[in-house]
Design a protein around this nucleic acid. Structure first.
Length: 458
RNA sequence: GUAGCCAUAGCUCAGUUGGUUAGAGCAUCAGAUUGUGAUUCUGAGGGUCGUGGGUUCGAGUCCCAUUGGCUACCCCA
């Protein structure tokens, strides 16, 4: 019936939604700045070569690729045909597409740092809040266009950075009144040590992908998946022992030390986590050994934020440490660590938990009734004076009966109407009516500004 | 990429084993009311039932295809 539409998984945001989203974004931005991060924006599209191969095989499929221009030009025909053929063979090619929409903010950031490392002051702390695109099938909490807010620190290996980022999470979520979020942490080196312990270190990815699903599908299914990936039964036993470790953060570390003894990588990971939990006691940080995160570029601490338990929503934020992200772009030895907020999921969670304050709607303060030419001329003058004082005002667009003008004010939730008719015009006065109470008062235009300021508490 | 559910007025939906001219609430517009609304009353407009095909004397209803939406898997914020 309706032929116009928008692409699958994208959304229009009407006024009230924009206001709520801005509330989240402004909260996050303020906290980022409070912790000394500076802003960065990068283009919506990147060269395909910048993005391809950075998110694993699955990620490559989810990139939105942009068709090259000018493929119909005769001189490009050969190239286009070649490109199409390699596409049909499942190979990625720049013959047809050499650009793609960004998939996250981390890789474009690494690209930026690689390009500008000469000019940057290290450690470089940047935040970035922009949309990203993924050609995923939409469902609850999953969109094809969504906004991420990232904060990263590059050029430093210090664990202080991890602490700061965890504190940022804590401050943002408590500001948003989502105090019972949980921040789960783990360490890639621990996962690596585990893989080593099973005797099959190159199965690291298979192991992490499987155990990451533990709280979703349970050990039974996880072990089935491991069997499928051809892990030995001893290896699976070891993993079961690892996942069985429970208790307080302290207890987990003690048990881990025992399990992973003599694995130097593992010891480093345990040491790091130990430092973090001792410095983050005031936050909701919990060690979760099943946390793995799919992205391969993480090398140290990994983070994931879960929404309060009574909400069915995946992670609403995540991040981790990467030792060599810019190495992908030819600039080695710039370690970094970063976190991300999933604004759209945070929005959905807050909507479900009714956490948005009700003062968010921005509306006009005063509606002037339009009762004729000369009358509205007087209104115009007064309106400008009000606006100079920070009181927002508008006048009804035509002189129709008051009934209509009242209804407009109601619908737009304008709290006060100002009426200047014949009588008022002659006496240089105005009627100020407060709609909620129905009270009205006729006062001089000169006094009306102060009167309105009090009425509107401005 | 795979699977399940859904599609009727601007919105939320009803619509009997297939049977006359497809309904309700809300919203919109007009009037009762030429300077006072939110709470009243009266009236009006608005649908080729997502699209295309089939079965049937007859399809909103049954069958097939297709498009779109939602949900789940894979993966992920």
């Amino acid at each position: 019936m309706n032929k116009v539409g928008i692409p699958q998984g994208t959304r229009d945001f009407s006024a009230s939604i924009v206001e709520k989203r801005l509330y989240i974004l402004n909260t996050i931005r303020a906290v980022f700045q409070l912790y000394g991060f500076e802003p960065l924006e990068t283009p919506a599209m990147e060269n395909l070569n910048t993005l391809i191969g950075k998110y694993g095989e699955e990620g490559d499929k989810l990139l939105f690729k942009i068709l090259n221009n000018g493929l119909n030009d005769p001189k490009n025909h050969d190239k286009a045909k070649r490109g199409f053929e390699s596409l049909m063979e499942g190979k990625s090619t720049t013959d047809l597409t050499e650009r793609a929409l960004r998939y996250d903010l981390t890789i474009p950031f690494a690209r930026y740092v690689a390009m500008h490392h000469g000019q940057l002051t290290f450690p470089y702390k940047r935040y970035q809040m922009q949309p990203v695109w993924r050609a995923d099938r939409p469902q609850k909490g999953r969109y094809r266009e969504f906004t991420q807010c990232d904060a990263d620190i590059v050029g430093s290996k210090s664990l202080i950075n991890e602490c700061e980022l965890a504190l940022i999470y804590h401050r943002v979520f408590t500001s948003l009144r989502m105090e019972n979020y949980s921040l789960q942490i783990n360490h890639r080196k621990i996962l690596y040590a585990l893989a080593e312990l099973t005797g099959d270190a190159n199965k690291l990815t298979d192991i992490t992908v499987a155990i990451d699903k533990l709280d979703k599908i349970g050990w039974q299914k996880v072990s089935e998946e491991l069997i499928e990936k051809q892990l030995s039964s001893e290896a699976i036993n070891t993993i079961e022992k690892y996942l069985a470790i429970k208790g307080s953060n302290e207890e987990i570390l003690v048990a881990l030390k025992e399990l992973l003894q003599n694995k130097t990588e593992g010891e480093k990971g345990i040491e790091d986590l130990s430092f973090l939990i001792h410095n983050l006691t005031a936050t909701n940080t919990r060690i979760d050994l099943s946390l793995a995160r799919g992205l391969n570029y993480y090398t140290g601490t990994i983070f994931e934020v879960k929404a309060p338990q009574d909400v069915k929503m995946g992670s609403i934020g995540g991040g981790g440490r990467y030792d060599n992200l810019t190495g992908l772009f030819g600039v080695p030895d710039i370690p970094g660590v970063g976190i991300s907020f999933g604004v759209d999921r945070i929005y959905d969670v807050m909507e479900e938990l009714k956490l948005f304050p009700n003062y968010l709607t921005t509306r006009t303060d005063v509606l002037f009734f339009n009762l004729g030419k000369e009358e509205s001329a007087a209104s115009f003058q007064l309106m400008e004076n009000l606006r100079n004082e920070g009181i927002s005002a508008e006048i009804f667009h035509e002189a129709v009966k008051m009934d209509k003008q009242f209804k407009y004010a109601e619908k737009k939730q304008i709290p006060v109407v100002a009426i200047i008719g014949n009588n008022e015009l002659e006496e240089n006065r105005v009627i100020i009516k407060h709609l909620a109470t129905g009270k009205q008062e006729q006062i001089s235009t000169a006094e009306s500004i102060l009167y309105l300021k009090t009425l509107l508490k401005k």
